[in-house]
Structures are given as structure tokens and as C-alpha cells.
Design a protein around this nucleic acid. Sequence first.
RNA 1: GGAGAGGUGGCCGAGUCGGUCGAAGGCAGCCGCCUGCUAAGCGGUUGUGGGGGUAAAACCUCACCCAGGGUUCGAAUCCCUGCCUCUCCGCCA
Length: 421
Amino acid sequence: MLDAKFVREHFGVVEESLKNRGYDLSLDEFLASEEQRRTLLREAEELRNRRNVVSEEIARQKTQKKDVAHMIDEMKRVSDRIKEYDTQLKALEERTCEFLLNVPNIPHHSVPIGRDETENVEVRRWGEPRQFDFEPLNHWDIGAILDILDFERASRIAGARFCLMKGAGARLERALMNFMLDLNTAKGYREVFPPIIVNRESMKGTGQLPKFEMELFRTCNPEYYLIPTAEVPVTNIHRQEILQEKDLPLYYTAYTPCFRREAGSYGKDVRGLIRQHQFNKVELVKFVKPEDSYDELESLTRDAEDILQRLDLPYRVVALCTGDLGFAAAKTYDLEVWLPGQQRYREISSCSNFADFQARRADIRFKREGKKGTEFVHTLNGSALAIGRTVAAILENYQQRDGCVIVPEVLRPYMGVEVIR
RNA sequence: GGAGAGGUGGCCGAGUCGGUCGAAGGCAGCCGCCUGCUAAGCGGUUGUGGGGGUAAAACCUCACCCAGGGUUCGAAUCCCUGCCUCUCCGCCA
């Protein structure tokens, strides 16, 4: 969420950023109702002041047994007027809040301007896509041949966009989770295992709600939401807290299952592990001081890249342009891994700096040593990595002519075997 | 699921029959004094958010005693609802 005062005072900046993101949203109505709100607020506060002053007077005179009926009479009228003001103010506040909740973050000035994903900018590449002396298969074919990925039975158990992993497939999934968590914690990220269904407030805090209700699974009675990413519960660890400067930065890593409706993605990636309703992911989350957040984004991205490098999977880093940037993000790098079966790079991690956008929504602040007042922290997160997609990448990149799959060296201690056959 | 208790400032803790309570007292922190010895004593000070104001402060004002409603001229104090915590019983991975 943006700061109402900031929007008031810098609406030019906000309009520009909305335009760059491809949003068609006018600020006029917001500015007008804000103006009205502030006027009403001042008048209401004057009345309250009057009421406070006279109420004290009433108390004083009453102890002296004086007649206060006329004052009480006046205050009755004042209180009625305050109530009227409050009703109006509440309506206005709801309107401005509602509006602000639907305004996306302002992109950082280093974010390339562009309409959609075709205008994202490649920042760097790592690794050489392997040259095959045979036609490389898709991971779902490899999975079927090895009998480690079973989409048919999964659809019987649950439905489309689910996968039953079996034998070495299940073991590979688990190996990757452990490998990634071990690596991340060794770098100083604190491992947490959070609730994976959360309340509405948490979803609001990170920006999934109210705008993206359609993309979430929800429970009824009582109402909870299944998390689409560990970002939600982990960022909300510090919701409504005031942290101390000396406690920052805070680094967390978490493995969780993730659940996504994938509404509106009909026909996309219908086969394989790329787009599932349920998938596993290891996430990195940072809480940092504002002045550090863009450096922290670079190091967070490097930490995610490190996993791909250790797995020896070719990838590239892409800076998302304004038109492709997520709602809450100020800047995002996507890591795209090479999939030989599809002959293209596919997203496997998304690393973002949200600046103070989530912190303001979730009310996560910090106090500087020796300074008055508080400031919002900056939050960041990134996948390190999406497990299912990593499985797909390993199967496709490490496949052999005879159908078996070599296990990447760093995973062998976790897998117990060198080859999946 | 059943029966009770409770949620007050960084922490502990008071708040009487609703009125001068942003809230006693203690601890902790900060500033100063005193003392010369490893610490005590004395004085002062210490929250957050909004609006106004200022070059910036100062300053003025409103709100905040879990959250949201209600009663009242006036609520931390009374009523209702919700959330959370604790104790006991039951059930259970």
C-alpha cells in the first residue's frame, strides 16, 4: 500500500508509475475525497475538543453542586453532531483505503519500462545449455518412463494440475527441499516452518488480498486461505511489530507447500510440473533497513542463483519491466532455468524488493537507535527455489539416451543413489 | 467439545461508586547532580498514530488501556460481539 500522504503530495509520480504499469486508474476522485476527509476531520476534532473541555467543566461544577443541566444539553447536541461527522468520515476513510489497497507499488527507477513480459531485460546468463546427441524428452515423459511422476492417478485423487510423485521422484522432491534449506541456513537464513493456511489479514499484509481473491484457495467455516507462497506467513511473522534497528536485517528461509487456483491460466502448461495447484517451494524472506534494500535484493538473487549453480543447471536472470512487475513489487528479478524438453528458459525463481509496500500494509516498523519515531522496514523475498520446477529441470537436463537420469552431484548424499533408473 | 480466569505503556503492576487518567507505583532506559570506588543516593525525563503548525523544531489538537460495536454530557472503568492467552475436564495425530 502506498502512503495516502505520499499520494497526495506526489500524485504526479504515482500517475506516471500507474501508466508505466499499464494501469488505467485515475487519482482525481481519491484526491477529492482525501481533501474532503481532511476538512471534515478538522471540524470533527474541534467538536471533540469542545466536548472534552466542557465535560471536564461539568465534572468540576458537579462536585460543587452547581446546576449543569444547560451544559449537558449543549453537549448532547455536540455529541450528536460528532456522530454525524464520524459516519461521514468513516465512509470517506473506507473509500480512500479501498482505493489505496488496489494501487500497485511504484516501480524503482532502475526497472525497465515496458508493456509486458516480452520487454523484460536479460541481465546475465550462467551455464551452457547442454548439446544432446538425441532428442531430449519432456520431464513428464521421463517421469512416466521411470514411473516416478504419475499425473493420471493424481487426477483421480484430486484433479487436474496435481501430481503424485513416487519412488525416486518423491525422494528427489525431498532431497531438493533438504538441500536448499541446508544451503540457505548455512548462509544465515533462519529456518522456519509456518502455518500454511492463514487468515485474511495476513493475505492483505503481503498484498494478495483484496485484489487477487480469485487466485487463492479458501476454506469455509472457519474461513482461512491456503498460502500461495511462504512469503505470506513468513512476512507476516512480524506483522504489527516494531523491530529494533540492531535486530535488522532479519533473514528467514522456509519450506512450504503452496496452493494456487491458477484461474485464468487455462490451456497454459497443461502438462507436467510447471503449473500445479499444489507445489513445494523453499523461500527466502528478508526484513531490512530501507537504505539497504536494493543491495539486499542483489544478494538475495545471488543466493537463489547459487542453488542453480550448485545443481549445474543453466539459467538466465531477467529484470522484469514495469508492465510485467507484480502488484506489490518495486523491483523483481526472475531466474529462468533452461528446459531442454521445451528448448526454452522457464521461470524457476522470482526475487523481489517490495520496499515499504508490504510493511505499510502489514504495519511492520523499526526504531532507529537514538531517534524518535519509527519507520517502515523494507521486505524482500525470493524462491530458492520452486521445487517442482527444479525436479523438471533436473529430469530434462540430466536425462540420458537410455532413459535414466543422472543425479546431480550435490544431491547424491540426499538421494542415496547416483542414477535414477 | 464442556467449565472457569484473564487481556492496561519496553516489562511488572494499580485503577475505588463511570468524571480532573495517557493513565499511580515499581523495574528498565536516558539526562543531570552528588560521591571516588565498582554501586548506591537525589532531581528530571521516556509511547504510538492522525490533523494543524514550522525552513526545521517548538507548539496546538484528536485518537489509542486486545479488536469492533453500544449506553452516557463524559468510559481503561458499564453492556454486547469477536479474537487471543491461561487453568481444569473430555477427545485426539
